[in-house]
């Protein structure tokens, strides 16, 4: 039997525009992660591989700007943690609160500020910007939502903003 998608509850409406999940990085920014990313896409930019070039151009090694979201993704497992550890928690909250069990990221916009350097401590928070009416898509029926993830560094500098356009859906919804 098909499930009807419920209205947006008032407690979810109240979350729109509210800062949530302010947190700091739980591990050091280091080049090992940078090399994994560069290797995965065969990125030979010497800023990440050549110490002298990095020193001359960026004042030392930096991380690729598009790694912005990488620094806040939780470990798959950690001592004392229970259940699945997820990044972009507001996204998973919305899936649950809106009874939309499936979801995909439909689009992404990033703005880059100060570069991320090994040893940096970053801080982030998430803001739900909007939730759409019910839409019918090729993968199912559901809602689109937009989430901003803001990142600043230990000097209070703006490091970047990651804006996700997401679709939460049900495959069986009428």
């Amino acid at each position: 039997m098909s499930a009807v998608i419920p209205e947006i509850p008032p407690e979810v409406q109240a979350l729109i525009g509210t800062e949530q999940y302010r947190e700091k990085t739980t591990f050091d920014i280091e080049m090992g992660y940078v090399y994994n990313t560069c290797a995965a896409v065969q990125n030979g930019n010497p800023l990440f591989w050549d110490r002298q070039v990095a020193k001359d151009i960026t004042g030392g090694f930096i991380a690729p700007p598009t790694m912005l979201s990488v620094w806040f993704r939780p470990h798959y497992w950690a001592p004392g943690a229970e259940g699945e550890q997820t990044a972009l928690q507001t996204h998973f909250d919305l899936k649950r609160l809106l009874s939309l069990p499936e979801a995909i990221i439909a689009g992404n916009e990033m703005v880059f500020g100060a570069p991320v350097r090994p040893g940096d401590t970053l801080e982030t928070y998430q803001v739900i910007r909007s939730i759409s009416d019910v839409k019918t898509t090729k993968v199912g029926r559901g809602r689109f939502w937009v989430i901003d993830v803001e990142v600043i560094n230990q000097h209070g500098e703006f490091v970047g903003r990651d804006t996700y356009s997401c679709l939460g859906y049900r495959r069986d919804a009428p």
Partner: peptide
């Protein structure tokens, strides 16, 4: 999604060289 972004970054800076500095990307 983040890997998609990493491919685009590599593509852009392959072209610009290392002094090319990404400011914004939307996909």
């Amino acid at each position: 999604t983040p890997n998609n972004a990493a491919w685009f970054e590599r593509y852009v800076t392959d072209w610009t060289g290392p002094k090319g500095r990404l400011g914004r990307m939307k996909f």
